[in-house]
Design a protein around this nucleic acid. Structure first.
Length: 197
DNA sequence: CGAACGATTAGCT
DNA sequence: GCTAATCGTTCGA
């Protein structure tokens, strides 16, 4: 697997920049994972963000050091994985919404209970289940076990559009995807903004 | 202490 | 497309 390992300092930018930086990067948890093809940016000045109203027991990882994981339970059912970014205390993070499966396919199929590669990691809850994300990983460093995050090597275009499943601040285009990927949780609209390499 | 509400998904119409 | 499932977190009384 090529690509250099990302360091916490690589997460010092604002959430939108880092969300784009992560498109095409490879994420592995205990050797299982693949290429990140969809992310969403959230930060302290963002009404849709968990960190908008300040630190709480749940979101404390978002106000901790960058380059760490923020894991939360969604709808009482799913575990969703975020990467904390910016400098300490800013409360910014990036939701990992979809991955192109590359390694540990059998393990993912086993956890997900289905075979179709396109359905293994195409959605934040699915990513959580396929990679075995749990509360134990909340606050863990992304450059240490069991995580591994490798910088992107390709130079494909990135697509930007409105975020999914939120009611507040639904207008800003802070959802990013790898242009043309078949593993997105949902397609981007025809008029989505294309960011060239 | 009670109640409302999700950064979702799967399954059915 | 529409909705049930399901429960921890958050906020108001």
């Amino acid at each position: 697997m090529k690509g250099t390992q990302l360091h916490p300092d690589d997460f010092l930018g604002d959430s939108q920049s880092v969300a784009q930086l992560l498109i095409g990067a490879v994420l592995l948890v205990d050797g299982v994972g693949g290429r990140i093809v969809e992310t969403e940016a959230y930060d302290r000045e963002d009404a849709a963000s968990h960190s908008f109203s300040g630190p709480t027991p749940r979101n404390r990882a978002m106000f901790g050091p960058p380059g760490h994981a923020y894991v939360y339970r969604s709808y009482g059912i799913h575990w969703c994985l975020n990467f904390v970014c910016r400098e300490d205390g800013h409360g910014a993070g990036i939701l990992i919404r979809a991955i192109e499966p590359l390694q540990g396919l059998d393990r993912m199929r086993e956890r997900r209970g289905l075979d179709d590669v396109k359905l293994l990691c195409s959605g934040p809850g699915r990513v959580g289940q396929a990679l075995g994300i749990t509360r134990e990983l909340d606050g863990c460093r992304l450059d240490r076990k069991p995580f591994k995050v490798l910088a992107r090597t390709g130079d494909e275009a990135i697509v930007a559009g409105p975020r999914i499943g939120i009611t507040k601040a639904a207008d800003v285009p802070w959802r990013y995807g790898l242009a043309g990927s078949r593993f997105l949780s949902r397609p981007f609209s025809r008029d989505a903004v294309i960011i060239p390499p």
